[in-house]
Design a protein around this nucleic acid. Structure first.
Lengths: 195, 195
DNA sequence: GCGAAGTTAGTTAATATTAACTAACTTCCA
DNA sequence: TGGAAGTTAGTTAATATTAACTAACTTCGC
């Protein structure tokens, strides 16, 4: 869970994330990483055993982030809709700061060919799902969230619509202001979920 | 638009779709296609000029399908919610019949590295979006669909939640009955959109 | 007997990884 | 405290494998 990385390792993971974001998974090669950093290809292997290890490092970073976010939201004293607002807003911040993150976190099938990576991605998705479902359940118990639809379906609506918005932003080459449209959409999610 | 393919071409495109579904875009190689069909690698080139041409063929097939579906829904005399039900149900049929289709149609970033393919994928997404938005607008005008939320946001909710459900099915290695959960979710979408 | 569809045997380029070696440090003890 | 020993992070060169694609030849059905 803790960050036991050397500076160079962190640099490599950051560059890897960026490369995936820019050129897709096929653009992530040891050559591209080393070129970007300015060292030779074999030098990468002084810091990671294999390419898979690098990808795993990237995913673990995203998982840590998801866990941290979940913990913050948990201890955030507010009603359900405010918590959801907070959660999605923080994600908007992350995506705006580091657009390449979207390609990795919302493009699970990239890792279809490696079972280890696929299950790591699954962990992250499950983590996000659980966080949102917990908030919704709480809201339902406290009478802020509608109860005529079960928490799983409501979570699907919240997460799914948010994801699609972000994905459209990515597909359109960031042609609109994600922050702005995102904030608006969060309000709509809250409207739909509210009692 | 029309289907000018030879049997062999159709076979190659089908196998390509399946391979992407099973092993991801990195599993789609000329070697794998030829092995699956039972002919040699160069034989593939008797039917398609290049690998990109094959991918383009796959995407064009999906686009034709989307267009056909849109046209059927358009001429289907029913109220908005029934139309949405019909549209999503047909997609569930398609995904259940050909699970590999999901990986291609809902995994746009796979084609990030080729501009031609990327814009083709964009056409398909836009097509689906337009179809759904048109239905919703109609429903709003005919007072079946809620008007306190704009059609674009409602379409995002319908499409986004549906996509996430299907994606979770894929990520979980088809561990649940998509048809069943899908039908249930369509009802929920209709409940949320209805007036 | 001609042309479409197939074959075998290659090519070229890319990719991940390894081998062998080095320069610049830190550690540690006689 | 000075120098041997070890470590860290890098280098260049090579390797094995895989990819897409090609050339030249064969087969087979109309």
């Amino acid at each position: 869970m803790m960050n036991n990385q050397t500076d160079r390792q962190t640099e490599i993971l950051l560059v890897a994330l960026e490369l995936i974001g820019k050129k897709g998974i096929q653009g992530l090669t040891i050559k591209n990483i080393s070129k970007e950093i300015g060292i030779s290809e074999p030098a990468i292997y002084r810091h990671f055993e294999s390419k898979t290890e690098i990808l795993l490092g990237v995913l673990n970073g995203l998982k840590d982030m998801a866990e941290m976010l979940a913990r913050i939201v948990e201890n955030y004293d507010a009603i359900a809709t405010e918590k959801l607002d907070f959660l999605f807003s923080r994600m908007l911040d992350l995506f705006s700061e580091t657009p390449s993150m979207v390609s990795v976190i919302f493009s699970e099938e990239i890792f279809n060919n490696d079972e280890t990576l696929k299950s790591k991605i699954n962990e992250i998705v499950t983590l996000h799902t659980n966080t949102i479902e917990a908030i919704i359940l709480n809201g339902q118990n406290e009478n802020n969230i509608r109860t005529d639809i079960d928490k799983k379906s409501l979570a699907l609506i919240a997460m799914g619509s948010f994801r699609l918005l972000v994905k459209k932003w990515e597909l359109s080459n960031h042609s609109f202001n994600l922050m702005e449209k995102g904030k608006t959409h969060i309000q709509i999610i809250n409207k739909v979920l509210s009692k």
